[in-house]
Design a protein around this nucleic acid. Structure first.
Length: 751
DNA sequence: TAATATTACCTTTTT
DNA sequence: GGTAATATTA
């Protein structure tokens, strides 16, 4: 034997897994049994730590791949983690469960639904479906939807579930009239959901907790199955998720959680920061590792982020640092209104992409509210900057897509009352509200499934002969489709559904552009189904579920997040919430104004610290360049008003900032009028009232930012105004700029 | 029942 | 400004 120090076969591989890690990262990766908390600052390489740790556990033989359950919050994050783990450990990664809380729960429940009184083929209701159910329950209980909005009641129910209170618990401690109403609706909602064999997103978590609490054998089985638990974004967990982890972790407590309390921005969705703040208390003997070295941003950007977040009181102390150098200052630009802001952003993007060689897919614009994207989009179109918008109305929330999915849901689960109400008169087949609600009350009184009732409409009291006929025809079509549901692929089935039900025909009959778009969306959905069919065939595992059931389960937990592309040459627009977990070379945070960001409502409700964390998230997305902009005047829901610059702007130390106060160059006004605007940022104190109200002379002349139309060059925008009534116009048709004599050119303001 | 006028209302939303 | 849920009428 030549080797004096025998090296085990995997030693090399193991060494490679910890190579290139900094000391705390390495400590986290090499941690053995027992609870581990990793406080991971923004950009500190947490995904790297998580994936290496998984690989390390497998490589050292501490864990068998099938014993690993790694949980994320988004499908996208799960996908990324799966890929990266596979790169490290190879094909055995397929034995691990790497998925979202909700997917994991759905899968566990699918196998055990009957023990909780649900059908195996239970349907997952998204928020919109669940809201419809809440509305129906309110109607049944004769709750006035004007007095209490369905939304607020839904939110109250969801909140209760996330605290693991069922309707009985809730009823026991209600103390106001509103809560009393909620508790009644909640109780009916629970009943109707079980009858429809449907679960909303909260149910997926809560019912899994129920399953583990009620059935020790099930709990112990899964405790043994998943000996190693790893959770990403732990700061976003709620009580139900916490309880779930506690139950799964069992005695062994091989639980690794990674998160950053400073990035907790989902309290309105019942996420509870205390979960991460009290982890060491909840899981005794936990090792704590802090990752503070940032590999993403410049020193200037990090200092800005640190300075902003320092204004919060409750947090785990940490200080992000980097050895990457200072970089450029943060640009803070104050503009006249949201249009000027949009033009500034568009202009800067052109400059970054054109002159500084930034790639478009490395540029993003963040805003507080989705509604803010509209003005920006208009401007980007005019500047011919290609972009994509993340969020807003999502593909899977479009009416036609939901209709199509509802048809499939009803085929898979004949008790699904909400899907029934969605499709019964869409397309129009002369079945109105009356008929619909009579059928539903009949199902509620007899306890039958909607499918059975609609198949025999003659037994429903109060239905006229025309209604009976229409419903019978509908039921016959559905019955025909159900016969096919068994054999056909999902794509084929979906296509039959859309043809046989007359859905395509009615869209075609509309002959509008909108209808055409809907057809395209439906074609895309068929495409998604086709892809699913192919993948399923490839995997070829033995499965108990039908393809249809599986497809529906998957698609319900799908979101637009999965559609974020970075391969194409597009800049990205999204809300600050959507930005978490992403990074861009250059980032713009627009609408940094009191009332917008921080949002007025958050200020009222005292959620300032969360708003500040949102600012922290936004700032830390930027790798090299950060812009923060605000508008003095902004139209918000119809009316225009004046705003103060956001306090978050003032919280960024002056020495890190390059102020750009874009005063309006009016040209004819004689003196410069930019003094007040610049002063707005100079001092730290309160802005004076005089700074807020900008006395503007009416639009007798052209001003920078005006949209104009030229008789021969077409639409354009004034980019500057020079002495002697010369205006510089950038025309959409040409891309370049042109100097014109304002008094003589055939130039008009656009309306 | 369905198409059209009118009015109320507005954050964020991984699943 | 724009949606979405009501009220109104054909």
């Amino acid at each position: 034997m030549e080797n004096l120090a025998p090296i085990s076969p995997g030693a090399d591989a193991i060494e490679r897994l910890v190579q290139g890690l900094n000391p705390p990262q390495r400590r986290a990766v090499e941690h053995g049994e027992g609870p581990l908390l990793v406080i991971a600052g923004a950009g500190s390489g947490k995904t790297r730590v998580l994936t290496r740790r998984i690989a390390f556990l497998v490589a050292t033989g501490q864990a068998h791949p099938s014993e690993i359950l790694a949980i994320t919050f988004t499908n996208k994050a799960a996908q990324e983690m799966r890929n990266r783990v596979e790169e490290l450990v190879g094909g055995v990664s397929r034995l691990m469960w790497v998925m979202t809380f909700h997917s994991a729960c759905a899968r566990l429940l699918r196998a055990n639904a009957e023990r909780l009184g649900y059908k195996r083929s239970f349907t997952i209701y998204d928020q919109a479906d669940s809201l419809r159910m809440v509305k129906r329950c309110m109607e049944e209980n004769e709750v006035d939807p004007k007095r209490f909005t369905p939304r607020s009641i839904q939110a109250a129910i969801s909140g209760a579930k996330n605290r693991l209170e069922d309707s009985t618990d809730y009823a026991a401690q209600q103390s106001s009239y509103f809560e009393q109403v909620v508790s009644e609706v909640y109780s009916l909602y629970e009943r109707r959901m079980v009858e429809a064999s449907a679960m909303d997103f909260d149910d997926l978590l809560v019912r899994t907790v129920n399953l583990f609490e009620l059935f020790a054998d099930v709990r112990e089985r899964y405790q043994r199955t998943f000996r190693w638990l790893l959770v990403d974004e732990y700061q976003d967990t709620n009580r139900a998720q916490y309880r779930l982890l506690q139950l799964l972790a069992g005695e062994a407590q091989n639980l690794t959680v990674v998160g950053d309390d400073a990035q907790s921005i989902y309290s309105f969705r019942s996420a509870d920061v205390r979960n991460i703040l009290e982890f060491e208390h909840d899981f005794q003997g936990a090792e704590v590792v802090k990752l503070e070295q940032n590999y993403r941003s410049t020193g200037t950007i990090l200092d800005a982020a640190n300075a902003v977040i320092a204004n919060n009181t409750e947090q785990k102390q940490k200080n992000l640092w980097t050895d990457a150098g200072r970089g450029e200052p943060v640009v803070v630009a104050e503009l006249d209104d949201e249009h000027a802001e949009a033009r500034y952003v568009a202009g800067e993007i052109e400059r970054l992409v054109g002159d500084e060689d930034y790639s478009r897919d490395e540029v993003a614009v963040f805003y507080r509210m989705n509604a803010q994207s509209r003005v920006l989009e208009d401007t980007l179109v005019r500047y011919e900057v290609p972009y994509q918008v993340i969020g807003g109305t999502k593909f899977y929330e479009r009416a036609e897509v939901k209709d199509a999915i509802a048809y499939l849901s009803l085929l898979a689960n004949p008790a699904d009352a909400i899907s029934f109400t969605r499709v019964i008169n869409s397309p129009r087949r002369g079945i109105g509200r009356q008929t619909e609600s009579r059928i539903l009350s009949h199902t509620n009184t007899t306890g039958e499934e909607v499918w059975d009732v609609m198949s025999r409409p003659d037994v429903v009291p109060g239905l006229g002969s025309a209604a009976v006929k229409a419903v019978t025809r509908f039921a016959a079509v559905m019955a025909g489709l159900r016969d096919r549901a068994e054999g056909d692929s999902v794509a084929e089935l979906l296509e039959s559904v859309l043809h046989d039900t007359g859905y395509f025909d009615s869209l075609e009959a509309e002959r509008t552009l909108e209808a055409e778009g809907r057809m395209e969306n439906l074609q895309e959905l068929i495409g998604v189904a086709g892809e699913f069919d192919i993948n399923r065939k490839v995997e070829g595992e033995e499965r108990e579920d039908t393809p249809l059931e599986e497809f529906l389960a998957q698609i319900r937990l799908f979101t637009e997040q999965d559609g974020i592309r970075d391969t194409e040459s597009l800049i990205t627009l999204m809300s600050l919430h959507n930005a978490k977990g992403l990074e861009y070379d250059a980032a713009f945070i627009i609408g940094c104004e009191e009332g917008v960001f921080p949002h007025a409502r958050s200020v009222e409700e005292g959620n300032l610290e969360e708003e500040r964390r949102l600012a922290y998230v936004g700032v830390t997305r930027a790798k090299q360049r950060l812009y923060m902009t605000c508008a003095r005047r902004r139209s918000l829901h119809g009316t225009s008003g004046w705003n103060l610059p956001s306090r978050f702007l003032r919280e960024v130390p002056d020495e890190l900032v390059d102020h750009k106060a874009m005063a309006i160059q009016t040209g004819w006004q004689g003196g410069r009028s930019d003094g007040a605007a610049i002063r707005g940022f100079g001092g730290r104190g309160e802005l004076r009232a005089a700074d807020r109200v900008q006395p503007q002379t009416p639009e007798a002349e052209f001003r920078v930012g005006d949209d104009v139309v030229h008789a021969s060059f077409g639409e354009g925008v004034i980019t500057s105004v020079e002495p002697g009534s010369v205006v510089v116009v950038r025309f959409a048709s040409e891309g370049g700029e042109r100097k014109l004599m304002a008094d003589y050119a055939p130039l008009k303001k656009a309306s």
